[in-house]
Nucleic acid binder design. Structure first.
Lengths: 137, 137
DNA sequence: AATTACCCTATCTATTTAATAGAGTAAACA
DNA sequence: TGTTTACTCTATTAAATAGATAGGGTAATT
């Protein structure tokens, strides 16, 4: 199941991408328009800023804005920041690889075998989609 | 993240599929060989039996066995039983559809848009893989 | 009839998710 | 320069879920 964090994050990013100008948008505005708890949204936008997806401006007229063009923002990056590893088990993860402690041999492990295919399929989707693809035209 | 329930279930099914004869295999044997808590495994195998994947035999010489040939057992069915809906959000689920309460319009929802593609990609994998594909040769 | 192994219910703990509160800090503008 | 505005951080809490465990009950073989 997709976490609300990811859901909210995607909606917020899409909202920012749909802006005509590149003026900062206040958290309160996004939270209101997209039905998201403001405080929760704060932490989500913060993590997107710290990982280089968003920029922020303080003071009057401040808010959050996209650093790059929507079509330059890959879903692989967004999903890894918001949802964590794309792989469903650590032993098939590209960026967060870990050996399973209970599994004697990855080569013959059926879970590993299936999840490798699942990872590749998901990766293909996330690599072929950018934030621009999520904005309704 | 894949639940341990699914992980254990897949390993148990693979273990059964790898049997030469079709004699029932005891829970204790699978639990020992695959490093799975026996009680937890009991409940997993039970749900697989109730959904028509496994058969069971009681008494001496009893245990669990596959009802169909491994290549007839689709991963779509197995995953739905063990892990639940394949879709990451209910609004794109084929078998468990539900409207999102916080989303005004699915047609313009960016989350819906992305998750639809993710669902299709995952579905393709699960439809093209059977239990036979998980057994190491 | 006794054994074996499935079957069911209930409980418990740890972890994670989601939401909330409150205080602090930095930048913009008058 | 000071006030406003809005971002930033820490901590707390409630709810849900996962995972594991215990113990007893029941049905089918031999």
């Amino acid at each position: 199941m997709l976490s609300k964090k990811t859901k909210y994050g995607l909606k917020a990013l899409t909202y920012l991408a749909a802006q005509k100008d590149k003026q900062p948008v206040q958290i309160a505005e996004i939270s209101k328009k997209e039905n998201i708890s403001q405080k929760f949204l704060e932490s989500i936008l913060l993590s997107l800023r710290k990982t280089g997806i968003l920029g922020s401006k303080k003071g009057k007229g401040g808010g959050y804005y996209l650093i790059k063009e929507p079509k330059e923002i890959l879903m692989t990056d967004v999903m890894r920041i918001l949802e964590g590893p794309i792989a469903l088990v650590p032993c098939v993860s590209l960026n967060f690889y870990e050996k399973c402690e209970d599994c004697p041999d990855e080569k013959t492990c059926s879970v590993n075998k299936l999840m490798l295919k699942v990872r590749d399929a998901n990766l293909a989707v996330y690599r072929n989609n950018t934030l621009a693809d999520l904005v309704s035209t």
